[in-house]
Simulated assay, not measured.
Amino acid sequence: MPAAKRILILYTGGTIGMQMSADGLAPASGFEARLRAQQALEEDGAELPEWRFRELLPLIDSANMTQGHWLAMRDAILAGLAEEGCDSVLVLHGTDTLAYSAAALSFLLLGLPQPVLLTGSMQPAGVAGGDAWPNLFGAMRMLQRGERPGVQVYFDGRLLHGARVGKLRSDAFDAFTVLPRRRQGRHADEIPTTLDYRQQRRPVRIAVQPLFPGLGAEQLRAVLESGVEALLLECYGSGTGPSDDEAILAALREAHERGVVLAAISQCPQGHVEFGVYAAGSRLQQTGLVGGGGMTREAALAKLFALLGAGLSRTETERWFALDLCGELVE
């Protein structure tokens, strides 16, 4: 892949640029000057690619991430690439929801010819022995080497697929990994123009509901009747659930008939959905559930957002949800 000549650095906030406030660590502006000062201290600082810096205001702690921020990131990336003449993108992001944003951008930027890396840190820049500068300059060096188009996460010396990554730890530098979930399914033959990076999106009302022993039909119905456009159901094992509870099955079936998209993933860290293995899974599938294979929660949620946000119907959303668009389902 061609080496980066000019990088767009989009700073959204997060621990990497935080400074102490009266209430504790909080996002702070002025990070561009700190970055340039640190680059001058790096052994290869003068050899790194040229870069342009943009802040996504207001800067946020990523715990406050919303769909609106995803859309703003997508718009800022496209605007920065067009206006600054950049050939690659580095997004600085907080770690709490970094995996969610990486997945969202993976689907919002389908077909983008430039590579996009996301990074952040477990400790603020400037902490002795911290991971902020190694992650940031490590990501720049990766882009300098040349990366393929698509969204990836660079963290603790590793490149991780944007639609497969998950955060496993909250107190270690190697906080992120690609979850070892079974990858199977069928690639989409091509990405339609209705789903590529040029397509505007809108916010979507989505709920995530894990199954657990004791979940009542009235609880599930309350979620389904709250105005959601899609429900991501986190099933047991290979896609099973309380298939002998007719009230739960009826709640799902009725919601599907109303036009709610019903999608299923496995709540097992290394699980995948394969409805036909057990009768309990087959009965759930019959309510209208579409299986998400080995997709993570982050990827499945982001994919539903991108599909419905593009204006697809329930039937179209179910069709594309089951196909691999960027490596979320198939290696």
Score class of each variant (00 low, 15 high):
residue 43 E to N: 11
residue 45 G to S: 09
residue 47 E to Y: 06
residue 48 L to G: 09
residue 50 E to G: 01
residue 51 W to Y: 15
residue 52 R to A: 14
residue 53 F to M: 02
residue 54 R to V: 11
residue 56 L to A: 11
residue 58 P to N: 13
residue 61 D to R: 10
residue 63 A to Q: 13
residue 65 M to H: 04
residue 66 T to C: 01
residue 68 G to M: 05
residue 69 H to F: 13
residue 70 W to H: 12
residue 74 R to I: 00
residue 77 I to C: 01
residue 78 L to I: 10
residue 80 G to D: 05
residue 81 L to S: 04
residue 87 D to Q: 06
residue 88 S to C: 03
residue 89 V to I: 12
residue 92 L to N: 11
residue 97 T to A: 05
residue 97 T to N: 10
residue 98 L to I: 03
residue 98 L to R: 02
residue 101 S to Q: 02
residue 102 A to S: 15
residue 105 L to V: 02
residue 109 L to A: 02
residue 110 L to R: 08
residue 112 L to P: 08
residue 116 V to G: 03
residue 116 V to Y: 07
residue 116 V to I: 08
residue 117 L to F: 03
residue 125 A to N: 12
residue 126 G to R: 10
residue 128 A to N: 08
residue 131 D to G: 10
residue 132 A to Y: 06
residue 134 P to K: 01
residue 135 N to P: 11
residue 136 L to W: 02
residue 137 F to S: 15
residue 138 G to H: 03
residue 141 R to H: 02
residue 144 Q to G: 15
residue 148 R to K: 15
residue 149 P to S: 09
residue 151 V to H: 02
residue 152 Q to C: 11
residue 153 V to K: 01
residue 155 F to I: 06
residue 156 D to V: 01
residue 156 D to M: 01
residue 157 G to S: 09
residue 158 R to Y: 00
residue 160 L to P: 10
residue 162 G to T: 07
residue 164 R to A: 07
residue 166 G to L: 01
residue 167 K to A: 08
residue 167 K to F: 07
